[in-house]
Design a protein around this nucleic acid. Structure first.
Lengths: 146, 146
DNA sequence: TCTCATATTTAGAATTATTCTAAGCTGTTG
DNA sequence: CAACAGCTTAGAATAATTCTAAATATGAGA
């Protein structure tokens, strides 16, 4: 059985950028590597910025925002709306859904072809379905340990 | 077949407030009536504020925010997260989901018991499912009229 | 390798939705 | 009708994100 994550061996960030028509600048390469090396990730702009700083890469927050949006347009990332306070970006761009832990604010992927949704009414006239998002909101149970 | 909306004859706003333990103030009554009279609604704080002004009710925006949150705690409203830019409040608190028209920013209800979701993995240890949200994102088709 | 036009980055200001604060009203209860 | 707890409110404060304009880096071509 395939994991949710597609094969994505040590991200060829450079190649990906070229394909997307984005100049491989120092900042984009660094952010790309942070994002795409090592599995699926869900990040906020703020968090990625801190991570970059911590990794000794100097990038402004504005550039982090720019880059996240450009990557999203290039379909290297996907935006996930779960919380009205902040925007998450997901490195997994395949068909899937999310668990959202309301306490910690963390996200977990749910494989898209494990879930089936039936009975959806058809889209109203003059519209097309761009995407269906399923968000399973979780709360920590009172006494988790026993 | 039942419509999505439960019967809700000309909202007894006063009663609802009492039951929720909220003082029936002029502002809460007015906002309650705007919200609960006449079918299911999806509003933003800003929009409800303007509507109140237009109806000749003087309420501050802060009070609109307070009231929307208090109504939500009292389960008279439900918060819908579809757009990272603004928060929507839904007067339909029964089990249901949403179409979201990305162009206009408008929401439409999808009856909850028309849809079935199968194959959801169980919630991780120490967590409980608080709610499952399905959002069908719609885009206007290029040439809607023909 | 050098130059240049253009894309990119950036600091800081600006914006926007929302929350907070502190002071003044108002409902309710005795 | 007094009095207090609960409400409302203007305006300040916050926080995430976007904008601006100036400085810098990149890639193509000579």
């Amino acid at each position: 059985m395939k994991p949710v994550t597609q094969d994505r061996p040590y991200s060829q960030t450079l190649t990906r950028l070229r394909e997307a028509g984005l100049r491989p600048t120092r900042q984009r390469l660094a952010l790309g590597r942070l994002l795409f090396d090592g599995g699926d990730r869900h990040v906020t702009a703020e968090a990625l910025h801190e991570e970059a700083q911590a990794a000794g890469v100097s990038v402004s927050l504005a550039t982090v925002y720019n880059t996240l949006h450009q990557f999203t347009e290039a379909h290297l990332l996907r935006e996930v709306v779960v919380d009205s306070a902040r925007t998450y970006f997901d490195t997994n761009v395949s068909d899937h859904h999310h668990f959202f832990l309301e306490n910690s604010g963390s996200l977990m992927d749910i494989d898209g072809n494990k879930i089936a949704i039936t009975g959806l009414p058809q889209a109203p006239d003059g519209t097309d379905v761009a995407r269906v998002d399923v968000i399973v909101r979780l709360q920590g149970t009172p006494r988790a340990a026993e």
